[in-house]
């Protein structure tokens, strides 16, 4: 009762505020309160785990970080070394000789075994033949054969004519 009276006193002082319905005007994402307990409990569980295990599970030797700092500073300040590829003249000339020898042998063996040259004309002809219809080729071959046969017939007639009209002596005589 006392609480109600106490909470109503201000209404007389502020009639405009009093006329505004008291309600929560903020909203929350869908299912927010359904998941809130679980989210808080998960956070509490993580917190308990953190409390159980020390922050650093790995250790380093004592004074490691001080030594590391000194080493890094020392390495950073020391001048950089120039590495020589050849420490003596003998090694330098031997390397050059080896290089020349290897290069010479390479050239020699390449000359002995010439690369087979590619006959582009043959390849082109094969391609043309491949592209022509098979029947056309068969017809062409048959036509050529007839001409050859007719030519053969003419040749035998000529031989018969020569054998008939000329003697062996005349035929074997040297001119």
């Amino acid at each position: 009762m006392g609480k109600n009276l106490e909470n109503e006193e201000w209404r007389e002082e502020a009639p405009t505020l009093s006329g505004i319905p008291r309600r929560d005007v903020f909203s929350v994402p869908h299912n927010y309160f359904e998941n809130l307990s679980a989210n808080i409990e998960a956070k509490v569980a993580v917190d308990r785990l953190k409390a159980l295990s020390p922050e650093q599970t790995f250790t380093v030797p004592s004074g490691y970080f001080d030594r590391m700092k000194e080493e890094v500073l020392f390495k950073a300040k020391s001048p950089s070394k120039v590495l020589k590829l050849w420490h003596s003249n003998v090694l330098k000339y031997a390397s050059a000789a080896c290089f020349v020898l290897v290069a010479g042998l390479g050239v020699y063996f390449n000359q002995e075994q010439p690369q087979p040259s590619v006959n582009y004309a043959e390849i082109a002809n094969e391609q043309i033949l491949f592209d022509i219809d098979e029947d056309v080729i068969i017809d062409h071959i048959q036509g050529t054969d007839q001409v050859t046969r007719s030519l053969s017939a003419d040749q035998s007639d000529l031989e018969n004519y020569i054998l008939t009209n000329f003697s062996f002596r005349e035929l074997t005589a040297e001119y």
Binding site: D24, F33, L36, I40, E41, V44
Partner: peptide, 19 residues
């Protein structure tokens, strides 16, 4: 007990903070 406490107070505390 903690689950009961959350069920009882989580919304009241949320709205108090949110405002």
């Amino acid at each position: 007990a903690f689950n009961l406490l959350l069920t009882k107070y989580q919304q009241k505390i949320y709205w108090h903070i949110r405002r």
